[in-house]
Design a binder for these strands. Structure first.
Lengths: 215, 215
DNA sequence: ACCTGAACACCGTTCAAGT
DNA sequence: ACCTGAACACCGTTCAAGT
């Protein structure tokens, strides 16, 4: 059977989930697809482009129609911001090392990211200026990426340690291991995530009531 | 002359500044020091440890005694937070690709970073609980790292483009090129940085006055 | 104690040539 | 159009052996 671009992408996602970003090499991917390394370069011009396509796939559903819009209730801007942040974090936690991958490949294209634009639109609903909403969207994105990269790298360290100690089955899905994080950090990562998120939302809110809040 | 650990570190910093993180290889470093690659492994167990030492060097003066403490004036907590954030950003902008280097090597050791602890202490001065101050310190760090990585990668892209077009002298210091950022983004990066920073500070402030601010 | 020489086990990418 | 075979130009790391 002939190799399709989508097959290469799916194969790459499988290696990411099973072995992590460090083991995702063009040669390993080629072997897993039963093909020579050079064959991949007919479908993708280089590895960076492949990683970009993976990042797009990971984030494809993040900026969907908000669930709260499906009934007739109009959504509060802060709920929309929080929902977007939650969806972004969840999308990355669904694949091993996905936060690191997204942070690395989106570093240069963040300006054009649909997710960032959704953040900006949600922030603009609050009533702050469009310019301020744009600025806030970057801050939000930096925070969500930073938190999730950190969170995911820690769970990954714990998975590695647990496997060494033989405590956890090697084929357990990464998502079920999040609770082991509590060894090194205090409390539920989701709660920690929401705390920082609320700091932002309150920061935006402060800009609404008071026109000169920073002395 | 015999090679000292400090010589290896200095040589690595020179390659970082002149050629960037992508060209910082153990083999290239060995060549620049007039030594065989294997010699480096007597001074550093591996490349990761060397990168960690570089990150420590880049950040060594960030958490110094605040300038405002040198006279007798007591410092406001928010001024201390802002000063720390500015010093962290400046320290990374002083070396090519330093934000990327710090973000990559501090991903796993952020919990123990002195800079993060300084953020936590400054935030605690506001009157929020120690626990909340710790959480806020992570958010602050994620934001500063994310913003600076983004900012620095953009100036680096512009330097590369400018060199290709022959617009800028190849030996111009990176710091003098920050203004070219305005082609792709709106406004001064320092102003953008302060906007997001104030969002955080106001978020902390909101937690002081109102005990249940998030509905 | 500190370094050389030489290897080991990899990488990403290119490209003529095949089908 | 799609892939193979084979190479090019690299990596980080190890380690016996030298001084």
């Amino acid at each position: 059977m002939q190799l399709r671009r989508g097959d290469v992408l799916d194969g790459a996602m499988s290696i990411l989930d099973e072995y992590g970003l460090g083991d995702l090499t063009m040669r390993r991917l080629a072997t897993s697809l039963g093909v020579q390394p050079g064959a991949l370069y007919w479908h993708f011009p280089n590895k960076q482009t492949l990683l970009g396509a993976m990042a797009d796939k990971i984030l494809e559903d993040v900026d969907a129609i908000p669930a709260s819009h499906l009934d007739g209730t109009p959504t509060d801007w802060s709920e929309r911001v929080v929902e977007l942040a939650h969806r972004l974090r969840s999308a990355m936690l669904a694949h091993r090392d996905a936060a690191e991958l997204v942070a690395a490949t989106y570093a240069s294209r963040m300006t054009n990211s649909r997710v960032r634009e959704s953040f900006a639109s949600a922030a603009a609903m609050s009533g702050i200026s469009r310019e301020h909403a744009e600025l806030a969207s970057y801050s939000l994105l930096y925070y969500v990426l930073g938190h999730t990269v950190d969170e995911q790298s820690h769970t990954q360290m714990i998975v590695a340690g647990a496997l060494t100690r033989g405590t956890i089955a090697p084929d357990a899905p990464a998502s079920s291991l999040a609770e082991y994080d509590e060894d090194l950090r205090d409390g539920d990562p989701a709660v920690r995530f929401d705390f920082g998120l609320n700091l932002f939302v309150d920061g935006i809110r402060a800009r609404l009531k008071d026109r000169t809040p920073h002395s």
